[in-house]
Design a protein around this nucleic acid. Structure first.
Lengths: 310, 310
DNA sequence: TATTTTTTTGAAATATTTTCAATATGCTGA
DNA sequence: TCAGCATATTGAAAATATTTCAAAAAAATA
């Protein structure tokens, strides 16, 4: 095997631009002796002459010209690669793909993304479509950089950075009897149809923190992908649903539905799940910071997390 | 400086195709230990993680993916380069650019090129246009591979391989008085107009071997690039010219002009000038052999060279 | 032809890469 | 849970590769 390396191509380029081997050596920060050894070694290896040492301005042979050809189109690729890698290492550029488990997040996410893009133009931003709720696996496998979730399951190498606290509210039709009750107990939902996002119950606050601990299940469960659709269904009396208070407020203000606390209040924290290794990048930490500030500014009825971490 | 080399890219590709580092090591013919050292060294150098060792099928990080990108488009270029170089070394492919000083050579050169092309399809054939009669310099500087010349000046690293011997004839109008003379002496051309190719006199047989030794110059010299044009001028009585007998025979047969020997006969040898180093390529030696055989077959009135060399 | 410059050479010094042996880490299945 | 196995890492020694140095050779210059 010939096993040509980048340095051989660099040698050829220098050879092509210089008049004498002494110059070439200088350009490559080598002694003329080292250069001579290298050249001899290369020529022995490919079993071809590369330069004609006899001529004044040092002429490449056919083999040398062929090497130069590849050198000229390959070396710039190496340079671009190294450029990109150093920028990556400095944390000025990179990829930031976000998956959202929380379906009501666009409200604060969009402004965050816009603000971020302005600060870090070299970072490739993307929102991942559908990871079929395997998003944490995708995060571990480097397919994603951030997962927004309210359900932090401990995983190796994954850190959950709290963004803000919110209360989960029960969304009711305006005329619903539960509007009159002092405190809403889990059992009161036994006869109701619950409308939820199509995700496993353990991912939903109302189950994990309210119904399941009390061993209660609603009469029916109906799925919907879109928050507006859920609201429409509730408004027309087809059921009730649970939403973060800030997600529901938009609709209560317009008097489409009403909301109540669940029991004495079901509170939860929204997290950004990231790989531990990602945190060494400035743009990552910056993103989290922006998300915290902008969600607090954008949303009503939420609070900063107890534990600030980062 | 990062100083990434081809081997690093190969490492990344292996990393991307294998499930475990042990496999990667096997694929690269290394011990797992060596591989581990390499990987650590690379990652320390670029100050970035390249693979996530924690995951089962070994996932590349963003940096790893960027490296893979360059690897995928650069490594095939190295492979093609090595391929071409080994073929070059074996002498199966290469470049063969020919310059012609002898303006009447196309007659035998064209069949030679055709035959050659059939045997050595991988050799890039070309006839060089105009080197302003600096063709030997161009040969020394690797711009050309062969120069066809009748005037071998000793040069370092250049070998002259004789192709064939020929006689230079004087071409006369059919009714010219010199047609009647027993032997044409140099002095008899003192009053004639000589039509020649536009090259320095020393490159022309009639000067070098006939007129100059006798200290004679023709009355006028007129230039023409094309043999047919020279013949037309001679036929219409504007002058005389000298041509290799084989180049003239085409026109004497058609009774356009007549030819005579110069003195007791001016004989010369046509050479192929090549770089000594070129002779190690099979296709080079093959070309010379073909030129010899085909010129003898194609041309009349020529003889094989005295000294066969090659 | 003498002198300077360039290039090559071989041996020693230096640097890099690989291996070896030991150990650590992680996974699998009782 | 832990033993047993496969994978991965570590540090030191060994093997390779590269560079320098000093000297000589070859070319160029004057």
């Amino acid at each position: 095997m010939l096993n040509l390396q980048r340095k051989h191509l660099e040698l050829i380029v220098a050879l092509n631009t210089c008049e004498t081997l002494v110059e070439v050596a200088k350009q490559l920060h080598l002694t003329p002796s080292a250069l001579s050894h290298q050249l001899t070694e290369l020529e022995k290896r490919i079993d071809l002459t590369v330069v004609d040492r006899k001529t004044k301005p040092l002429h490449l042979t056919t083999a040398g010209k062929r090497l130069l050809e590849t050198a000229l189109d390959t070396l710039p690729r190496f340079e671009r690669l190294e450029n990109d890698l150093t920028r990556l290492a400095k944390g000025d550029s990179g990829r930031l793909t976000i998956a959202i488990e929380c379906h009501s997040c666009y409200q604060w996410l969009i402004p965050t993304l816009n603000e971020f893009r302005a600060h870090w133009p070299a970072v490739e931003l993307d929102i991942a479509g559908d990871f079929h709720f395997e998003s944490l696996k995708a995060l571990m496998e480097n397919e994603l950089e951030i997962v927004i979730t309210a359900d932090p399951e401990p995983l190796n190498g994954i850190q959950y950075l709290p963004l803000f606290q919110y209360e989960a509210h029960l969304v009711l039709p305006l005329e619903h009897t539960l509007n009159k009750v002092a405190i809403i107990e889990p059992a009161m939902l036994k006869t109701e149809t619950l409308i939820s996002y199509p995700v496993p119950p353990r991912k939903l606050d109302i189950f994990r923190l309210f119904l399941s601990p009390a061993g209660v299940e609603p009469a029916h469960i109906r799925h919907s992908e879109l928050t507006v659709m859920m609201i429409a269904l509730v408004a027309s009396g087809r059921g009730v649903c649970a939403l973060p208070s800030w997600a529901a407020s938009e609709y209560t203000e317009r008097q489409l539905v009403s909301t109540r606390s669940l029991g004495t209040g079901v509170f939860n924290t929204l997290y950004a799940a990231v790989r531990e290794t990602s945190l060494r990048f400035n743009y990552m930490r910056e993103f989290i910071k922006l998300a915290r500030t902008l969600s607090l500014q954008t949303l009503q009825h939420i609070a900063p997390p107890n534990d600030q971490w980062l």
